[in-house]
Amino acid sequence: MHAVKVKRVCVTAVVALSLTACGESSTDSADDCSVEIFAASSLSSALTAMTDELRTESGCDITYKFGSSGSLAATIEAGATPDLFLSSGTTSVTASGLDVKTSRAIVESSLAIITSKGSVASREVIAVDDLLEKKWKLGLCATTAPCGELADEVLTNAGDVLGNTFDFGRNALADTEAINASDLLTKVEMGELDVVLSYASSCADNSDLTCTVIPAELDGRRLGEKSTYFVTPINGSSQVTRLLTFMTSAKFSERLVTDFGFEALVK
């Protein structure tokens, strides 16, 4: 009696597993391949919105891992094997152990002063020297993230332009650091930070934020800085090559510029 019961359970389990397997195969993509993309968090909105196009171009399913280019590079260096790496700047490409000669520039983004739309800070913080006021809760990307490096360059430039009587040091100004650009923006949206320095492209698809691009020059001296985004292939498979061709095409960069607030490369 017991043996019959066990047999019945086994048969039911086998049938259930078979059905599950059938169900899974029916949801698989037609080509049964996938491309894994590691990308800077500042590209997350754009890439997520363009997933269908990327799927069509590559003929494969697309999966993402977003984060600071620095931490993604550390992950690759530690052994992760994505198919493509979209980074802000090439420092992280070098840090990841990939060949920087294979990297191709796509678009750029300027650093901007970002506040919550309609907040007091959005009216009063409109230039870099406004950051000197201690009343603002200011967030910067960590120095390990490209947006943090860029912020440090701009603050150094501001010190040069506005005179050394002002302390534009990171520790003097910032209340906190975030590991990537997206994390900073979340804190502004939550109202925990008044102002952050991050990419101007952040405001294109987020109506809750106000971006004031830091001008490239002030009084004839360098102030604002830009970050260039690169795509680096990690393997030479046909689907990766197809995606690389698409991502370095004018069509792709125009989409990023028109719909997601990035800037075209200066030729």
Partner: peptide, 9 residues
């Protein structure tokens, strides 16, 4: 909650 800033938090 506290963030991460060198020599502060």
């Amino acid at each position: 909650f506290a963030g991460s800033l060198k020599a502060k938090t």
